[in-house]
Design a protein around this nucleic acid. Sequence first.
DNA 1: CTCATGTGAGACATTGATGTCTCAATTCAA
DNA 2: TTGAATTGAGACATCAATGTCTCACATGAG
Lengths: 184, 184
Amino acid sequence: MAFDRDHVLRCAADLLSRKATATQDEIAKAAGISRATLHRHFAGRDALIRALEELGMRQLQEVVDQARLDDGSATEALVRLVEASRPVASFLAFLSTENQLFEGEELNEGWQLIDVRIAALFKRGQESGEFRIDLSPVWLIEALYGLISAAAWTIQLGKTAPRDYTAMITGLMLGGLERRTPQP
Amino acid sequence: MAFDRDHVLRCAADLLSRKATATQDEIAKAAGISRATLHRHFAGRDALIRALEELGMRQLQEVVDQARLDDGSATEALVRLVEASRPVASFLAFLSTENQLFEGEELNEGWQLIDVRIAALFKRGQESGEFRIDLSPVWLIEALYGLISAAAWTIQLGKTAPRDYTAMITGLMLGGLERRTPQP
DNA sequence: CTCATGTGAGACATTGATGTCTCAATTCAA
DNA sequence: TTGAATTGAGACATCAATGTCTCACATGAG
């Protein structure tokens, strides 16, 4: 059987999203290959994680492309972005915590490119008057990742329904908790 | 030198909040004791983490007490809660991810007691008409933790100023991103 | 002071995961 | 078909962290 790199990475991403401490054995088994083969193609856990990081970046890039952040209102674009992120939410959550553990090493620049695009969306919304201007795009990006991770987590635990994913995040992030009382 | 259990735990919490993968040696050194002594009082990393979990619970309980969730408007109470959480934000973030890694084991019931109190705050706000009712308290709690973790993280990285902590979280969570346009 | 107790330092064993190797079996291309 | 390349399986080594000792030393209560 020919080695399917992409398939292996996706299986690894899937498993690690559910069990971040999975061993190489478990990952290999989940991908349907032997540990030897896994190690031949990804020399060590670090290499595997880095390959997964690239996969995650590619996927998130596709998500951002698919959301067409420049089209329509910034609000609509954000909703599209969140909706498109649903399939990769757990994986993103995994990569986020993994990146935090890397401590010293600087962040892969690929993430920064994506962040710039998302930041541009927030800026666009602020300049068009849709979004408030007293929350910095830097914070909004991190908050978005945080909410995506939190939503992925609650869904994984069965605390909330998967179909509510987008509404949960955008409902809170866009509208906020306070009720909009129509001025009398 | 007499063994100061609380001091050791606080040092461990402080270190692990910054470096989640710190070893027992590093933790002992950070606490100013030997690894032998550390192991005498906390037999293994698991025991230490569990003790830290209890410390975190105690601290969060104090935070909740201090915030007087039943006083005044729910909005004000939430702001007080977030403000009071600032000193323990990084530690909470650490414990959150740690809990996620525990996989199988059920959550310590102490957290549930705290969550019930916070959920009650959200419910109170919803019943009083301050908060929207289409976001479940379960989600709001997780979202709050997620935002606290995200804020702690950005501050730790120097991306945002510590003094903005409360405003960042409450600004987004209460008001939302969309500008409140006064009806013309 | 004296002794019991707890501590620090370090040596050593253990453990779990990972890295490395070999070899038979399989696959694929020529 | 043949042969080169790759895989699976497992044995074995390595490594980092942890667990477990011992013992000299310090501390504090009596």
